[in-house]
Design a binder for these strands. Structure first.
Length: 686
DNA sequence: ATCCTCCCCTAC
DNA sequence: TAAGGTAGGGGAGGAT
């Protein structure tokens, strides 16, 4: 490379990094949190799931009382006998974000209003104002001019130059939604939350308890909701969720409507197929190709024809819906099936290093969310968006993903995890499999599925089960050739210590510097989609025999079970072009805790601890730190520490410390299983 | 048949 | 500038 070329390169690098600091791309260390804080879709989604699980909680902790049902005694009795009839109610707040925001901007009531990040055209002429900010929600006055949610502000201004914009107020949406749910749950908990502003309720049991006129009850409920939230809602009633939902459309805005059983067929006949729930832009397009527009047309169409175009299940659903039939029951107890973090905005990278750093944050965020709901997962999926071949590098929408291709790849982990480093490492590996130049990335998402069942099985038992499955499913696999990283065999503190007392004094070289191997930076344990070869260090008691035993016995056996001790640890071969899992920055987080082990003089200090009584939480400290050595992949340090502890505790012959050591071993093994997805041998318990 | 992976679609 | 997330249902096509 010529000097000039070098100079130029240096210059553009500088410019690039200067730009990075300014433009708020995903390179910015605060980008992820900043983005999530301001993303309406993120808030909509998380509030929605939040309320689903809020209902779970309320149902679980419910005392059987519904305080608001008292009011219902004032209402007139129903002429209809409801006992046998399904009555489903659908509540939908009217342009929720706008209604909530209008509470703080009352002077804008009655005008075309939109909630958006764009500041509107305060300092610009409506004509040349064009913004690619999206409209999250707009008032009915704005809708009258043809505005729709999701529309760009620029386009909206063309249709409606006098449009007023108001900013988001996410905290207030949350508060208001809580008030909404609180109000309803005083009447019933047979609720399926759809989102922060929309829900279904099964009124059957309420009506058995209080046989009142449904529409009168709903009028009362709507008034109460309005009084408490300051926002109006619309309510539909029907014999199933579909009918209730269709009825809500009739009710909007700020009204209520009951779709009577006798009218259903006739009513559905004239409905547009596009207006059925589950029919989106794509289905609508297919329908126009088939010259289908109304439910009436669907009602008589041969089912086969529909299924040809829309698939077996959806074809059937379409026809059923066109007749007003919907068998899907309301779901009161939600079960989480996946957790994900996705960012398809602001993704602009120059170097792999930046991608890795960003993915680390994404992994940490995912880990945080998993821990928040107390789940671990086994199926990890990376989803990315890549600039389409012919798409321009600059997108129309600022920092948008533009026209992009979506691809995904997943791995089945050997053990469920919620650990950020494990997630990060595997995600990097998945990404590397695509070999996409960093500057072509436009979106990144990571999803964890196959979440834990709430079983209380010990990790070890789960592992046995897994091996049993594997072995009965697959013939025994030939041992895969690996390039081992060798922990140099020395005269053997590590050699199978017998459970009895007699153990030779370990050689001092056990902890000498020359034996410290390069830190193991990468231990992936993934099967199938992963190229990494995994060596199973765990040799099992015949799992089929084990599976026959009663669980308590199995637990007993597992408690006593010791890992086969090995002098040499092998780790999978990691090809050079793959990213190191633990980069400098990811070690940084744990530095404080690891200090003890990384500083030169930890041995005398720990040695003196062990000579005195344990106390002051020193054992706990060691346990914690040792587990963190595993999590940060400081396996070689861990070895040094564990051997030292084992030797010196053995010498002291202090029962308390021996028990403490056993606890440390347990923690270390648990951390290994979780983080490395396998167990490496450590000096045995006492 | 039944599973799995990689999509696509929809809803808020 | 602008903040294009998230979860679930389901299908195609291949592996078992």
């Amino acid at each position: 490379m010529s000097l000039k070329a070098l100079n130029d390169k240096f210059k553009t690098d500088l410019e690039a990094s200067a730009a990075d600091n300014k433009t708020g791309t995903a390179v910015d260390p605060n980008f992820l949190q900043d983005f999530l804080n301001n993303s309406r879709l993120h808030h909509i989604a998380t509030l929605g799931t939040g309320f689903k699980y809020h209902i779970n909680d309320l149902r679980k902790n419910h005392d059987g009382k519904f305080p608001s049902r008292e009011e219902l005694k004032e209402l007139k009795r129903s002429e209809v006998i409801h006992q046998s009839r399904e009555v489903v109610m659908h509540i939908d707040m009217d342009c929720f974000f706008v209604s909530v925001s209008l509470k703080k901007h009352p002077h804008l009531r009655g005008q075309p209003v939109a909630v958006t990040h764009s500041k509107g055209r305060n300092d610009t002429d409506a004509k040349d104002f064009h913004s690619y900010a999206e409209i999250a929600s707009c008032s009915y006055e704005a809708r009258a001019k043809g505005l729709k949610n999701g529309m760009f502000v620029g386009a909206a201004m063309k249709l409606c130059p006098e449009l007023k914009t108001i900013p988001y107020d996410f905290e207030e949406y949350r508060q208001t939604a809580f008030t909404l749910y609180d109000t309803i749950s005083r009447f019933t908990l047979d609720i399926e939350a759809v989102s922060c502003d929309e829900l279904y309720a099964d009124l059957k049991s309420l009506l058995i308890d209080c046989p009142v006129d449904v529409m009168e009850f709903i009028a009362l409920l709507r008034k109460e909701i309005f009084d408490k939230t300051g926002c109006t809602c619309s309510v539909g009633v029907g014999a199933n969720r579909l009918q209730a939902r269709m009825a809500t459309k009739e009710a909007k805005p700020n009204g209520q409507f009951s779709l009577l059983e006798a009218d259903v067929e006739h009513y559905m006949h004239d409905q547009k197929i596009r207006d059925l729930p589950g029919v989106g832009p794509n289905t609508a397009h297919q329908l126009t190709l088939l010259k289908l527009e109304t439910c009436g047309q669907l009602q008589t169409l041969p089912l086969q024809l529909l299924q040809q175009t829309f698939g077996k299940k959806f074809g059937e659903t379409l026809q059923m819906m066109s007749r007003g039939v919907d068998d899907k029951p309301l779901v009161f107890e939600q079960v989480r099936k996946s957790v994900s973090v996705e960012v398809n905005y602001g993704i602009r990278f120059n170097e792999n290093r930046e991608v890795h750093t960003f993915l680390k944050q994404v992994a940490e965020e995912l880990s945080r969310r998993l821990k928040e709901i107390g789940k671990k997962g086994k199926l990890l999926t990376l989803r990315i968006m890549v600039r389409a071949k012919d798409a321009s590098v600059e997108t129309r929408k600022f920092m948008g993903h533009g026209i992009a291709e979506k691809v995904s790849k997943s791995v089945q982990l050997l053990a469920s995890t919620d650990d950020a480093i494990t997630i990060h490492g595997n995600v990097l590996k998945l990404l590397a499999a695509f070999s996409i130049p960093p500057h072509e990335l436009r979106g990144i998402g990571v999803q964890m599925a196959k979440l834990d069942e709430e079983k209380k099985d010990s990790k070890l038992l789960e592992m046995f089960k897994k091996v049993a499955e594997k072995q009965s499913a697959n013939p025994p696999q030939p041992r895969i050739k690996l390039e081992p990283v060798i922990v140099k065999k020395d005269s053997s503190p590590n050699k199978k210590p017998s459970p009895t007392k007699k153990r030779g004094r370990p050689s001092k070289t056990a902890t000498s510097k020359s034996n410290v191997v390069t830190p193991i930076t990468d231990i992936f344990a993934a099967r199938k989609n992963s190229n990494t070869n995994v060596k199973r260090t765990v040799e099992m008691i015949d799992p089929e025999v084990l599976a026959e035993l009663p669980p308590e016995i199995v637990d007993e056996i597992l408690k006593e079970y010791q890992m086969p001790d090995e002098d040499v640890e092998e780790v999978p071969d990691v090809s050079v072009d793959e990213p190191a899992v633990v980069d400098e920055s990811s070690q940084g987080d744990l530095k404080t805790e690891l200090n003890l082990f990384l500083q030169q003089d930890w041995r005398p200090k720990v040695g003196s601890w062990i000579e005195s009584d344990l106390g002051d939480g020193r054992a706990e400290q060691l346990e914690h730190d040792a587990a963190n050595l595993v999590r940060s992949r400081h396996i070689s340090h861990l070895y040094v520490v564990m051997r030292f502890l084992h030797r010196i505790i053995n010498d002291q012959d202090n029962g308390e410390w021996k028990r403490a050591y056993n606890g440390i071993v347990d923690s270390v093994l648990a951390a290994m299983l979780e983080t490395l997805e396998k167990k490496l041998s450590v000096p045995a318990k006492f």
